[in-house]
Design a protein around this nucleic acid. Structure first.
Length: 660
DNA sequence: GAACGGCTCTTTTTT
DNA sequence: AGAGCCGTTC
């Protein structure tokens, strides 16, 4: 009889001597170590421009090459764009197997899971998703109703507005804190309104449940809940995902951190990647403590540091390092470069116009010299800091795309059309009803409220006539037609636009431009076969850029980029301009002297400077227009204080016209 | 009573 | 660009 022998079962990693990718040759030694990390917890600290994406994509490929099931890899990133990009890059490195990994943001992963398992939490699986604006509008509606019910005079004592309530509510969830604590911390003006706020939040929660919708925060909360519940859903998730990787860990909030910890399960197979010097989302609840103390959550956590910067010249790094090292809490950051170039320039212009003209002039010159315009970016602190520059670009026929600021899906006309579709998908969506009702001629606040109340308490349904509101009859019929095409999104949206077109032409002078936007929008919708899916996708993953990108033509070539620094995260350009670098704009005026906020602004500036590969130009206008006092002299940003003349020479502009 | 046009004010950053 | 407010119009 044959003897039975015990053989150890090896799961996951099966190192092979023959791999397709020559990791030792394409990676530096720091990157290689992280890529070769097998199992157990790991933290990768990767400074700006050190090849972080490269490291992540190579580790994904390496795991798969060594026998890990692609389906068992979960890669959580900060934006959907980053998720798709990493997946594609890893796929190009290896092969189609990479397509089977899950790459998503925390929110889109939550949406994916809940779409299947929300039943466990008492939701209908076709729940809708509210974007930030929708959530705020909902708070507005609930607040108004609440005050009317309670007989509170809106003119008496000043009660917090919906925008404030929403912010506090969201912060409480993401930081896992209480309302009163947060108000105590940041704004004692509303200290006596705590119960008012709490009541409204309760009503808001009820309202969402009644309408079968979730907001962004619910997505995270409910994902967390469903894991904690430990039911069938968690069983499936836990069984499937064995390798968790989280990018931009410095920007996770407490709730996301807890979710990541739970997802890593008992095997603790989690790799966190990030850079605490690039933490720029604390306003959204991000805590860089999550990355600083990451190793302390585990018995044994491997630490990998990647510090060689391949992106920027030594001269640009010298400036970046000088700025970040002047921080109050010393970051152990000192990027080392490998290339040589021109010193960054700090330029003082007379005013905003001159700032814009300088950039236009230099861009035109670069184009003459054969530079590709897509290698150039202008970075701004706030979305509206580029308004003047955009005008000048238009005048000079310089094509540009803009990231950040007001988004396509947040413009009034797109929101209007979305409201038609939302009502068709979910006739209980009272916020959407209100929006389209108010658009109709002859219907104002009073009539709209009547209809909404009727729908809310079930007296009206979409299928029956509302004899007492003849003004809304036409609209009701239009919606009914759209409902009839709910499984043909293209037809549905075309019907919606037909109904909306006369309203658009009446209310907006620039209706032609907006009409074109709507045409673009039809193209997006056409890709779906279900209106509900399209709506929730759009909420979780709204188009980031302005229309030009959506048009699909001239995508990459010959287009200058204007971007908020937040939206520029993870990106790089050969030539970078940072504008409005002065006190009150950057750091933003209303962070005051609050030290944590100031430090975050400093990190933001650091992120901006480290986007540049070859040239970096920092501009601050001297005469700026102040609404209350007229023109005033500005002070250059304090972040430039630690930048010596040696690191970056200063320039002022001379107008040639006046000299000749 | 209800709607509407025109005015001013304010605007961080985003999933 | 959009929201809120106020005097005017239907």
């Amino acid at each position: 009889m044959k003897r039975i022998k015990l053989k150890k079962v090896v799961t996951g990693i099966r190192p092979k001597s023959e791999r397709k990718i020559r990791y030792e040759q394409v990676l530096n030694s720091e990157q290689l170590k992280a890529v070769m990390h097998d199992e157990g917890p790991a933290l990768v600290i990767a400074g700006a421009g050190t090849g972080k994406t490269r490291t992540i994509t190579h580790r994904v490929a390496r795991l798969i090459e060594d026998g890990v099931l692609p389906e068992s890899i979960l890669l959580l990133t900060f934006t959907r764009k980053a998720a798709n990009e990493m997946k594609e890059r890893a796929m190009a490195l290896l092969d189609g197997r990479v397509g089977k990994i899950t790459a998503a943001t925390f929110h889109s992963f939550a949406s994916l899971v809940l779409r299947k398992h929300a039943g466990e939490l008492g939701y209908n699986s076709n729940f809708g998703v509210l974007d930030a604006k929708d959530a705020e509008d909902t708070f507005g509606y609930v607040r108004q109703t609440y005050m009317r019910e309670k007989g509170i005079d809106p003119r008496g004592k000043r009660y917090p507005k919906e925008a404030f309530i929403y912010r506090i509510y969201s912060a409480a969830i993401n930081k896992r804190d209480t309302i009163s604590n947060l108000i105590l911390q940041e704004n004692n003006r509303f200290l006596d309104s705590v119960s008012f706020i709490e009541d409204i939040i309760t009503k808001y929660q009820d309202h969402k449940k009644q309408s079968n919708v979730m907001d962004y925060d619910d997505l995270l909360v409910n994902l967390h809940k469903i894991i904690k519940l430990g039911g069938k859903a968690w069983e499936m998730i836990n069984k499937r995902y064995k390798y968790i990787m989280v990018d931009e860990y410095q920007d996770t909030n407490r709730l996301q951190h807890e979710i990541a910890m739970l997802l890593s399960g008992s095997s603790n197979n989690i790799m966190a990647v990030g850079d605490e010097a690039q933490s720029i989302y604390s306003f959204r609840g991000a805590e860089y403590d999550n990355i600083l103390f990451f190793p302390e959550h585990f018995d044994k956590c491997e630490l990998y540091k990647i510090q060689t910067n391949y992106r920027s010249t030594d001269q640009i790094l010298a400036l970046s390092n000088a700025v970040i090292q002047a921080a109050t809490f010393g970051y152990r950051k000192n990027l080392e470069g490998i290339s040589y170039g021109d010193k960054p320039r700090i330029i003082s212009t007379a005013d905003e116009k001159q700032q814009s003209r300088l950039i236009v002039q230099e861009i035109l010159e670069m184009r003459e010299d054969g530079e590709d315009l897509s290698d150039i970016a202008v970075l701004i602190r706030n979305g509206f800091h580029s308004f003047d520059l955009e005008l000048e670009f238009d005048k000079a026929d310089i094509r540009f795309q803009k990231y950040g600021g007001l988004r396509f899906s947040e413009t009034a006309h797109i929101k209007d059309i979305l409201a038609y579709l939302k009502v068709a998908v979910n006739p209980n969506d009272l916020v959407a009803w209100r929006r389209i009702l108010l658009l109709q001629p002859g219907i104002g606040n009073v009539t709209a409220s009547k209809v909404i109340q009727g729908i809310g308490d079930g007296r009206y349904t979409i299928k029956e006539d509302w004899f007492d509101i003849p003004k809304a009859e036409e609209l009701r019929k239009q919606i009914l037609m759209i409902i009839g095409s709910i499984n043909e999104p293209e037809k549905a949206i075309t019907l919606a636009i037909e109904s909306y077109q006369p309203i658009l032409e009446n209310s907006h002078k620039d209706f032609k431009k907006r009409s074109k936007d709507l045409e673009q929008f039809v193209n997006i919708v056409a890709g779906y076969n279900n209106l509900g899916n399209m709506l929730s996708d759009l909420a979780v993953d709204p188009p980031t850029s302005t229309v030009s990108e959506l048009a699909g033509e001239d995508r990459e070539d010959e287009i200058v980029t204007i971007s908020t620094i937040h939206s520029a995260k993870g990106l790089e350009w050969k030539h970078v301009y940072i504008i409005w670098v002065l006190e009150g704009k950057f750091p933003s005026g209303w962070v005051g002297e609050h030290i944590d906020s100031l430090e975050e602004e400093r990190r933001l500036f650091y992120v901006a400077a480290t986007r540049a590969k070859k040239t970096l130009t920092i501009i601050h206008p001297t005469n700026i227009f102040d609404r209350s006092t007229g023109y005033v002299l500005s002070t250059p940003s304090r972040f430039l204080d630690s930048v010596t003349e040696e690191i970056a020479p200063r320039y002022i502009l001379e107008d040639e016209d006046s000299n000749e």
